[in-house]
């Protein structure tokens, strides 16, 4: 039995209401949407806010539709609804597939796209009960000053473990953050930072309100592949997303993002230079896979052999590219 720490639950009915509650309670309050990440973490005493501000009843965060050349997805749209949306499936099949691969059906019925983008990082030494963590003297990310993964490091290496951000990055998506001072837009490519303790640019008082994907990105051929232990429920051990812009049979643009390794999703470098102007054939796919393998170095932040996860980078890059070729 895992009890929640005491808190008060607030259900504002507007974005202004949510922001004003946050203004009132400050660092004693946290926002919650689906709760599938935050509530288990609260049960593990990783967060103990006195107040929870629920975002599910905020009308500014709902709905999927076109706006100004973008597909706009409200942050509180559930992952199940993203996966089932015809507007998403017809243009961004890799996003629908990634959303359908998050956790299990019940979690996708509650969990939201905004929540997946803001998912807390995960680590063998972090996602444990307070008793477990205390027995080991806690860790850098929470309550302690030592990293049990790197032993010597002073930088948290907990793994970014969300399935949809890599796909959204390859589609040049932008997120909208609303705070007390107004709105700002941040490209998802710049949204994540390499710090496992807090790995996004979102300020604690900001609400992620919507995700915008340029409709132009729909012309790219997309691929997505996820490594996991079972076919359901699991967080990714490795996720690869690719998007290829073709002119005839020649590669014009190529983007690849890998996650499940370090504190932020990794955009694969050197791909554009290798691929531009060439046909996406078996030879090129091998070269790209090798290039990806060289730059990925997983750590023991997830309790699965890092050498195996590294070897799988090449395999899953090939699988993602095969899906893009078949698209």
């Amino acid at each position: 039995m895992l009890r929640l720490p005491p808190f008060r639950y607030h259900r504002p009915t507007s974005l202004a209401g949510a922001l004003s509650l946050k203004g009132e309670f400050g660092s004693d309050a946290m926002y919650v949407a689906g709760g599938t990440d935050l509530i288990p973490n609260m049960k593990h005493r990783l967060f103990e806010p006195d107040h929870l501000i629920a975002l599910k009843g905020v009308p500014e965060l709902v709905g999927i539709g076109e706006r100004d050349g973008h597909l706009r997805i409200g942050a509180s749209v559930t992952l199940a609804d993203v996966a089932a949306s015809e507007a998403v499936r017809s243009r961004f099949p890799a996003l629908a597939e990634a959303a359908a691969h998050v956790a299990g059906p019940q979690l996708r019925n509650s969990g939201t796209l905004g929540g997946n983008v803001c998912l807390d990082t995960r680590c063998t030494y972090y996602n444990q009960t307070a008793f477990w963590r205390g027995a080991l003297g806690y860790c850098l990310k929470k309550d302690g000053d030592v990293c049990h993964v790197t032993k010597v490091g002073k930088k948290c290496v907990a793994a970014h473990s969300a399935d949809t951000p890599p796909v959204l990055m390859t589609l040049d998506a932008v997120v909208v953050l609303a705070g007390p001072g107004g709105e700002r837009r941040v490209s998802l490519a710049d949204f994540f930072v390499a710090d496992g303790i807090l790995n996004t640019q979102r300020e604690p008082d900001e609400v992620l309100t919507e995700i915008l994907i340029p409709l132009d990105s729909a012309t790219r051929r997309q691929g997505y592949a996820k490594l996991r232990q079972r076919k359901s429920i699991d967080f990714p051990l490795l996720t690869v997303a690719v998007a290829v812009g073709l002119e005839g049979d020649r590669v014009q643009s190529l983007d690849g993002v890998v996650t499940g390794l370090g504190a932020r999703p990794r955009r694969l470098t050197g791909w554009q230079e290798i691929a531009e102007g060439r046909a996406l054939d078996d030879g090129l796919v091998e070269e790209l896979a090798e290039r990806a393998h060289k730059q990925c170095h997983p750590l023991e932040n997830i309790i699965v052999d890092p050498d195996w996860r590294r070897a799988m980078v090449a395999v899953y890059v090939k699988r993602a590219l095969a899906k893009a070729r078949a698209a």
Binding site: L4, Y9, G35, A54
Partner: peptide, 12 residues
């Protein structure tokens, strides 16, 4: 919709 009641705050 099937939902996990153990991680759903009762107010929700």
């Amino acid at each position: 919709r099937p939902t996990l009641s153990c991680i759903t705050p009762v107010w929700e």
